[in-house]
Computed example of a mutant assay.
Amino acid sequence: MKEGLVIKSTGSWYTVKTNDGEIHNCRIKGRFRMEGIRTTNPIAVGDRVNFEEDKESKVIVSIHDRKNYIIRKSSNLSKHSQIIASNVDQAFLIVTVNYPLTTTTFIDRFLAAAEAYRIPVRLIFNKIDRYRPNDMDRLDELKGIYEKIGYKCYEISAKNGTHLDIIKDALKDNINLLSGHSGVGKSTLINAIQPGLDLKTGEISEAHSQGKHTTTFSEMFELDFGGYIIDTPGIRGFGTIDMEKEEMSHFFPEIFETSQECQFNNCSHIHEPKCAVKAAVEAGEISITRYESYLGMVMEDEDSKYRI
């Protein structure tokens, strides 16, 4: 039996890298799909696994305990979930103010999911080379919202190479997850910071201002300056799962901190009197868009937990 790191997942086959650098293509035993977790991918990039080798194939027989993972509903109508990646040190959400638009709803859902699994997140605002003055104003506004609550933000142009040295320093010696909508420039950024990979990139649909899916499966790449980067398929929507409504405020740091001053310990921050969170929103101390994202997540039903 051998042990290795899953560096690529196509849904039916998994590429596993052993500690001595050998690469093996493995499949999984069917029982992984019967362990009570209704996921589209029982094994994810970042997992450490054990596999057996015979004359015909190599089969993953066990998976090590995960340090963490980030998960989403796989689609609006699906009852299954999708593990995007596991055992990551930090995640980078690539955001574009335009070309295409990334909504605050999407950002906040991603951040909440990462908070739930204790994964630090940094925000990369890409395509600043294309931004008009009103786009730059919106960028400054968003940076103000997220830096205030502790999320590190970067302004870059992956196409022109602007500020990529800062991104490299942040990635160095970590296992890093890159995520975001299709078309925000994930593959372009990876190609820029790790020359030679030549990942396929796509153009934005001018009619719909959306990106086309150029990455169809998750894959981990080793960085020559230290660490790994996980490229993921573009996400159109981010549905949250396994979050109790009563705990939702825990995943919004500024709301959780302010809630200590509410009159009631179990305050939902929706209709109770003397709610410190509502007062902070009215005073402009908590962003209205963040509060609206919180309300949306608390008040939605299970069948609609999928938002762009």
Rank of each mutant, 00 (worst) to 15 (best):
K2D: 00
G4S: 03
L5F: 15
W13M: 15
Y14Q: 08
D20H: 02
I23L: 05
R27E: 14
R27T: 15
R27K: 14
T40A: 11
A44Q: 01
R48N: 13
F51D: 01
E52R: 14
K55A: 15
K55N: 15
E56A: 14
S62I: 04
D65T: 12
S74I: 13
S74H: 14
I83V: 09
V88T: 02
A91N: 10
Y99K: 06
D108Q: 03
A114W: 09
A114K: 07
P120Y: 07
P120T: 01
K127C: 06
R130W: 00
R132M: 12
N134G: 00
M136R: 08
L139G: 08
K143G: 11
E147V: 02
E147C: 01
G150K: 08
I156D: 04
A158T: 09
K159C: 09
T162A: 01
L164A: 00
I167N: 08
L177Q: 12
S179V: 10
S179N: 07
I190V: 04
P195V: 01
L197Q: 07
K200L: 06
I204T: 06
A207S: 12
G211L: 01
K212A: 10
E222S: 00
Y228M: 08
I235P: 04
G239K: 09
I241N: 14
F256W: 13
E261D: 14
C262Q: 09
F264V: 05
N266A: 01
N266T: 03
S268I: 08
H271E: 14
A279K: 11
E282T: 00
G284T: 05
I286W: 06
S287W: 08
T289A: 13
L295H: 11
